[in-house]
C-alpha cells in the first residue's frame, strides 16, 4: 500500500473509532477517547491487508437496504416455520464453491449468509472458498448466488478472482 493511501486509511479509521467512542461515552473524556482511537487506528493499519479493497458507496448502500429487507424476510420466515403445526423445515447441507476472491468479500458472505432466510454457514475451508451451508428451505443455492452478486456490486474485486472456479 502506498504511504498516501495508508495515511488516508489511518485518518478515516481514526475518525470512525472516535465516533464510536463518542457514541459509547459522550464527549466528556475526549482526551482519553482521542488517544484510544489513535491507538486503534495504528493497530488497525498494522493488521490491515497489504492490498486495500476498494468499494463502491452506492453498492454499499444498496447492500445495506438489501440486507435489512432480507433480515426481515429471514426472521418472518423462520418465525412462521416455528409456529406452524406441521413444522415445514427441510434441514440439509450443501457444499458451495464461492466465486468471490479471498478477503473481506468472502468474510462478509459467510457472515451475512447466516442472517438471511433459510441458510446458515456451518463450515468453511481455510480460504473460505468452499462453504458448508446448512439450509432449512429446499433450494438455497439461488439465494446464496444472489447474495454473492450483491457483495460483488459493493466491492471492486480483482478480475482474476471473479473468474476463478465459479459455481456455474
Amino acid at each position: 500500500m502506498r504511504l498516501g493511501q495508508r495515511l488516508v486509511r489511518g485518518i478515516v479509521l481514526y475518525f470512525a473509532l472516535l465516533l464510536v467512542w463518542i457514541v459509547l461515552d459522550g464527549t466528556g473524556d475526549l482526551v482519553v477517547g482521542g488517544a484510544a482511537a489513535a491507538l486503534g487506528a495504528w493497530v488497525g493499519l498494522l493488521v490491515a491487508p497489504s492490498k486495500p479493497v476498494r468499494q463502491r458507496l452506492l453498492g454499499a448502500l444498496a447492500f445495506a437496504g438489501y440486507f435489512l429487507v432480507e433480515s426481515f424476510r429471514g426472521g418472518i420466515d423462520v418465525a412462521w416455520r416455528a409456529a406452524r403445526r406441521d413444522l415445514p423445515i427441510d434441514p440439509h447441507l450443501i457444499r458451495y464453491r464461492v466465486s468471490l476472491p479471498p478477503g473481506p468479500a468472502r468474510t462478509l458472505l459467510a457472515g451475512a449468509l447466516s442472517l438471511l432466510p433459510g441458510t446458515l454457514t456451518a463450515d468453511s475451508d481455510d480460504e473460505g472458498a468452499l462453504l458448508t451451508i446448512h439450509a432449512i428451505t429446499p433450494d438455497p443455492v439461488n439465494a446464496v448466488r444472489a447474495l454473492e452478486a450483491r457483495i460483488a456490486a459493493w466491492f471492486i474485486l480483482p478480475r482474476e478472482g471473479a473468474e476463478q472456479e465459479g459455481p456455474t
Binding site: H92, I94, R97
Partner: peptide, 10 residues
C-alpha cells in the same frame, strides 16, 4: 447427522 445434497459445488 444431516443429509448432504448437491448444491453447486463439489
Amino acid at each position: 447427522e444431516v443429509e448432504v445434497r448437491d448444491g453447486g459445488g463439489p
